[in-house]
Simulated assay, not measured.
Amino acid sequence: MKYFYFDSVTQEGVESNATIDGQEADILNRWQTLAPQHGSFLGIYCENGQILQFMWEENYIQLDLPDTQRGGSLQKPVTQAEASELLVQAIHGADPSDIPGLEFFQW
C-alpha cells in the first residue's frame, strides 16, 4: 500500500506525490514512531482510491479524507488508538468514508 508522512520534529518525510510502498507493519511502525507534535502527519492511499490521513494538531489528531471534487474534506478528531485501528481497517480494505461521525468542511 502506498503511504506518505512528515515528522515535524525530525523534518523527515515523503510527500503525497512521491509515496512509498509499505506493508501493514511498515505503515503502523511509521505512525507509532511519528513525533506527536503539531504538523506531523501520515496518509495512505486506500484500495478505493481515497486518501486517508491523520494529522497531529495542537491537542488532538485530525482524521482527514480529502475530496477534491467537492472542494473540501471529511474530518473527525480521533485519539492515537482510534487512528491506529482505523489505519488497520483501511489497510485491510475498509472504506474510510464509512467511518461514523465524519463532517464535511470546505477548503
Rank of each mutant, 00 (worst) to 15 (best):
R30I: 02
W31F: 13
W31G: 01
Q32K: 14
Q32N: 13
Q32C: 00
Q32T: 11
T33K: 01
T33H: 10
L34Q: 07
A35G: 14
A35Q: 06
P36L: 07
Q37C: 11
Q37R: 13
Q37G: 10
G39F: 00
G39V: 10
G39D: 13
S40F: 04
S40R: 03
G43S: 06
I44K: 00
I44H: 11
Y45G: 03
Y45I: 10
Y45R: 13
C46N: 12
C46I: 14
E47N: 08
E47M: 11
E47Q: 13
N48G: 09
G49K: 09
G49C: 06
Q50P: 03
L52R: 04
L52Q: 05
L52I: 12
Q53M: 02
Q53V: 10
Q53Y: 09
F54A: 01
F54N: 02
M55Q: 12
W56P: 10
W56H: 15
W56M: 13
E57S: 11
E57V: 06
E57M: 10
E57L: 14
N59Y: 13
N59I: 14
N59C: 04
Y60H: 13
I61K: 02
Q62A: 11
Q62M: 15
L63Y: 02
L63R: 01
L63A: 07
D64R: 13
D64P: 12
D64N: 14
L65F: 03
P66L: 06
P66F: 02
P66G: 00
P66I: 11
D67W: 00
T68A: 04
T68L: 10
Q69G: 10
Q69E: 13
Q69P: 06
R70N: 05
G71H: 00
G71P: 01
G72C: 08
G72M: 04
G72N: 04
S73V: 08
L74R: 12
K76L: 15
P77G: 04
T79P: 02
Q80H: 15
Q80A: 12
Q80P: 15
A81P: 15
A81K: 05
E82Q: 06
E82Y: 03
E82W: 02
A83N: 02
A83Y: 00
